[in-house]
Design a protein around this nucleic acid. Structure first.
Lengths: 215, 215, 215, 215
DNA sequence: AATGAATGAGAGTTCATTCAT
DNA sequence: TATGAATGAACTCTCATTCAT
């Protein structure tokens, strides 16, 4: 517990603080509208200080995305190794996914934000490839959970596992966007309570119901 | 059909051409990264000319969204007035919605883009209120179609019509985003054919199936 | 003499004005110390306007250098085609070179400035190759004039033509720098009149004298 | 030899090490493009430590120049006090000058760099006057060596001693720049071997030859 | 009505300098 | 004495908007 250790720990804390500040700002404004000035202010630092921790704006973004994807890796592994029945694992995976998205709104949205045109990042960064691989890895690992439930005969698909999974993921993605856009939506549509809350959660039931084999 | 009429007609045509050009550019680049220069070039006009037709970039954006919403008004009315069975109207509505989204990708994405943080526009524009009202109008009109099918006993819902409709709309929204982000996805995930195509289309069947009453 | 012609002419004039302003600033401050702001102010324009005429700072610099090198091309061709005796052409070339350097101090210094470490320009610009080739062309063309005088037996060299030429060029380069640095030098050394004026001119006589064959 | 003495000695050694590191960096990158970070890394120190020894970047620069000028003082004195013939002292001085320039490329370039616009330093520093005086002193001392050779009748000048000396110095300056810019030159001109090497050396012979009286 | 040159605020990024430790 | 994190001013470059023609 010497000085270098404390330095290193503080450095890591500061990095994390920046990542947190940046994801909040990215969530609020979107990648291209968020300025380094905004992020610095949110992190209560000077603009220049950001560059002591991240090479540039793209790498800051990619680090956030990678952090979320690393969390997914872990989440998926935890579910896969649990001792539930295969079909239960699928449900558990979806539930955990939503829980994570709810608890880490900003990080989650940033990680998934590339689906929207102007989020896209230049691919020159050396981190970009790492990021691509992480997306693939997460997709594959979660797909594997579904496939095992199918192999076990616990779920029945109408199309390929990949396509089914994409459909589920895409629908949840849309529903999460809507849940997260509550303010924007309420500025436009008057809704009865409970409004948009829990939409994605409900979808899981629909989805699992549709895959359960007729008894 | 005097000269002022022709003038006015030509002015409107030019406005439409700009709206078309702008939505293509917004689709390609996203709202904040599309420049007025880009739009002018796409419209084969000078930058300055854009300002003769639209007060600023925000109003240009809002006009696109309003154009799409006007198309929806028409589309919904057409379906509502058709002589199909109520439940069929719901299916028809969804199919038409997707068809429109496919045929007018750019206009559609722009109109729906406000759900995503970085698309959001300042709300100072006088057009903004008009836009809000249009969203509400479209939502209500389409919701009415669903409610009629429920009243007719042709569809059975587990939760409120509003909520069901939001769920359907949100899921389709996510799936359309994914279909439209094919390139970005393929940069990250290797997929077997047919990739992301038709995901939303398939979802309609799932959705309608879930609502059909047990016979 | 229509409007487009006038536009084009004005555009070219503006370009030239910027080139002039930029070379004055580059001369005063050096490439890396001169800011686009400085240049804009000198040209009585806004910063942004510079970018309407030149892609970036490097290309602005390279355009100046290329303009000077084009002048050299012409100058050398004019001397080479004159009907003087070969050795006289060499002297003429040097005299003209100095005259040009005197009359276009800033442009000349900028074109030659790359010999000094921090003038150096990134070599990514497509203009850079053109620039390299122009330097080579000027060097070769002027060297040819010297070689002809040698072939004609009018001059006698102790080492290779290339090396002799480099020596002459290098010495003149140093002397011109000193002449152009009069202010800096006078801040440091008290000199009798005429100070540093005409140093390079005098050197030509020394140089030509050293090459003339003993009779 | 108490503790304070050792302290002082160590401090001076550290200063010298920084001066050495800085001149290497200045040589590589030029004054304005060398960063304090670069210098600190080269000196294997932290950025902050540089400021314990030098007030700011300008003073660091001036210290390098002063160090070189002090070396020149010594060099000139050594030559002046040797027991050679006066004309030989002149040659010796030039040879030693080149030797020093070759062996201390970086220090030399920095000391002489003020002749080139972009090296120039603000003249607010209190060291600036000292620097000016040192330049004058070196120039006068070396000029005296030339004058003695002339008085002794061993050299014959066509113009004033001062002017002759400036001419020699300027030409050598140009040639040394060229020798030191080998890389930049080779990026632009294809030269036969030996390229630019020894150009200045050769010039000394030409120069001395031109001053030797006809026997 | 239309142009496109011009503006100027503000973006990302760098770096000399300061300062708590 | 030495560190290196932090600052903030200055840099290059972009772009929505204006305006003379």
């Amino acid at each position: 517990m010497g000085i270098p250790e404390r330095r290193e720990r503080e450095r890591q804390e500061r990095r994390d603080a920046i990542v947190g500040a940046a994801s909040r700002v990215f969530l609020r404004k979107g990648l291209s509208q968020a300025t380094m000035e905004d992020i610095a202010r949110e992190a209560e630092l000077s603009k220049g200080a950001l560059y002591l921790y991240f090479k540039n704006k793209d790498e800051l973004f990619l680090n956030i995305a990678l952090a979320a994807l690393a969390d997914f890796d872990e989440l998926i592994a935890r579910v896969a190794q649990s001792d539930r029945a295969p079909a239960e694992k699928v449900r558990e995976l979806l539930v955990e996914y939503l829980r994570y998205a709810g608890e880490n709104q900003s990080r989650f949205q940033v990680a998934m934000g590339w689906l929207v045109p102007n989020y896209s990042v230049g691919d020159e960064s050396p981190l970009f490839e790492e990021y691509q691989q992480a997306v693939q890895r997460v997709f594959d690992a979660s797909l594997k959970v579904l496939k095992e439930a199918v192999s076990a005969g616990e779920l029945v698909l109408v199309s390929s596992a990949e396509r089914t999974w994409l459909q589920c993921w895409g629908a949840l993605f849309g529903l999460l966007i809507i849940e997260n856009s509550r303010d924007e939506i309420e500025r436009r549509i008057a809704l009865e309570k409970p409004g948009v809350e829990g939409l994605a959660q409900d979808f899981i039931e629909t989805f699992m119901g549709a895959l359960a084999p007729a008894k």
